[in-house]
Design a protein around this nucleic acid. Structure first.
Length: 461
DNA sequence: CTGCGGCATG
């Protein structure tokens, strides 16, 4: 009965029958839409005054829908958040807004709440996301001071943190000194060595592991692919299967990357077949990796089939198919898909526009290229990167328009950014566009003020 | 009473 109710988006009953038990029950399986209704009922019936933990349950549930804004709003409605509640909100911010996590932690301390053993791993995660090695060291010290340092989870997180920040000696020290190591500790060590490019050392640690699971196999497979040894990755994959360890989506994505590097359509199609036969969902990650593999191994048609068969598409999925069409010379189709992407309300990013502009270059669509360059800035607020300028240079060069000094003037605003400027001059020289490099590099043609106030204008003719 | 760590796409 209730299940029926939950599967629709109808309003959920009268406030008079609403109590905390019912609220909890409904929260278990509700949609985000329902969650907002339950929230409204909790407020209207004031049931949270007798059951303050209800708001935390609500917060927890909204985080399971990745609704960080909603969760943050909820959090600020909780008068005295419990440590558990602070932990939830600190963790939720750590991947994308790590600075906020750390701010929330100081707020937590200033409001008199005490951290527990869960708090510290979340803080260290925030430090890894923001590459804050100093803050990480402070958190490390505080964990020792408050007696929460002796914890395997924390040690594992710290191994990961130090190796991601490039402090391999500290990562190793944490590993060597920890009293209890598990498969995660070993895997973190393998990954640490992979990210500092010590593939051989990573392999030695991997071979010395007492126990391996799918994540450890995948870490090593991924390391081989990233380290330019895709053959080794496939050898490991065979050993993994012989060990009766089933791969997951991560494993297959890494292997597909290896197929791409080998340029082996046969091997890539085999992985695809393996995924289908073993009941893998073609989610956004796996599907996108397949599209990329098929396209780069020469089968645009197979890439398109995968794309159209995918239910869950991310911005990367769209980027991948648009780029594929572009480099295969199907500029018009690429632009048509970009239009579909906009229609599907998927917000394009900087990489989308690299694909779109490349498509224009490969098909010689000069006016379209200029138009999208504008759309990128004006509709989506994306500042052009070097890649985008590179596409525009290509576009003009191929159309034979770079002789026109009027077009050259359009590059003058590049002078406002030293980084872009230097790279651009290098690229221009490589492209033998010496005249262009001179123009961009010269200091005496326009004053700084006129340069910084000048908008881009890519109109041609 | 809830929860923690390691692996992915352009």
């Amino acid at each position: 009965m209730i299940g029926c109710l939950l599967s629709t988006n109808k309003p959920i009953g009268s406030p008079s029958k609403f109590n905390s038990g019912e609220a909890l029950f409904r929260l278990q399986k509700c949609s985000f839409q329902h969650l907002r209704q339950i929230h409204a009922l909790i407020i209207r019936t004031q049931v949270s005054q007798r059951h303050p933990s209800l708001l935390t349950h609500l917060l927890h549930r909204s985080l399971s829908f990745h609704q960080l804004r909603h969760a943050t709003h909820l959090f600020h409605q909780i008068p005295t958040p419990a440590t558990f509640t602070w932990n939830l909100i600190i963790r939720a911010h750590s991947p994308h807004d790590p600075h906020q996590s750390l701010l929330l932690f100081s707020l937590m301390l200033s409001r008199g709440a005490s951290p527990d053993k869960f708090t510290f791993p979340f803080l260290i995660k925030a430090c890894s996301s923001s590459n804050s090695i100093c803050t990480g060291n402070q958190v490390h010290g505080l964990a020792i001071k408050t007696g929460f340092y002796r914890d395997t989870y924390l040690h594992n997180t710290m191994i990961d943190f130090y190796s991601k920040c490039g402090d391999w000696p500290s990562a190793r020290k944490v590993f060597d000194k920890m009293p209890l190591r598990n498969v995660v500790s070993w895997t973190s060590l393998v990954n640490g060595l992979v990210s500092c490019g010590e593939l051989q050392a990573a392999r030695e640690v991997f071979e010395g592991m007492p126990v391996r699971n799918v994540v450890s196999w995948t870490a090593m497979i991924n390391g081989c692919v990233k380290g330019g040894r895709p053959e080794d990755a496939f050898q490991l994959f065979r050993r993994m299967l012989a060990d009766n360890v089933m791969p997951n989506e991560f494993t297959l994505v890494s292997l597909l990357l290896g197929c791409t590097e080998l340029g082996s359509l046969r091997l890539g199609a085999w992985i695809h077949d393996f995924a289908l036969k073993n009941g893998f969902q073609l989610d956004a990650f796996l599907g996108t990796a397949l599209i990329d593999m098929y396209s780069k191994c020469g089968s645009l048609e197979a890439a398109k089939r995968v794309f159209h068969g995918m239910e869950e598409k991310s911005v990367a999925t769209w980027n991948s198919i648009i780029t594929s069409l572009g480099v295969h010379g199907r500029g018009k189709e690429a632009l048509a898909l970009f239009a579909q992407m906009e229609k599907a309300k998927v917000v394009p990013d900087a990489i989308t526009f690299v694909g779109v502009l490349c498509a224009c270059v490969h098909t010689g669509l000069v006016e379209e290229g200029c138009r999208y360059f504008k759309v990128m800035k004006e509709r989506y607020g994306i500042s052009p990167l070097l890649e985008h300028y590179g596409c525009m240079v290509d576009l003009f060069t191929r159309a034979g328009l770079l002789d026109d000094s009027h077009e050259l003037e359009s590059f003058a605003p590049l002078r406002s950014s030293n980084d872009i400027l230097e790279a651009f001059i290098r690229a221009s020289k490589e492209l033998s566009l010496v005249g262009l490099a001179d123009l961009v590099g010269s200091d005496d043609k326009n004053s700084d003020a006129s340069v910084s106030n000048q908008g881009f204008d890519w109109e041609v003719g």
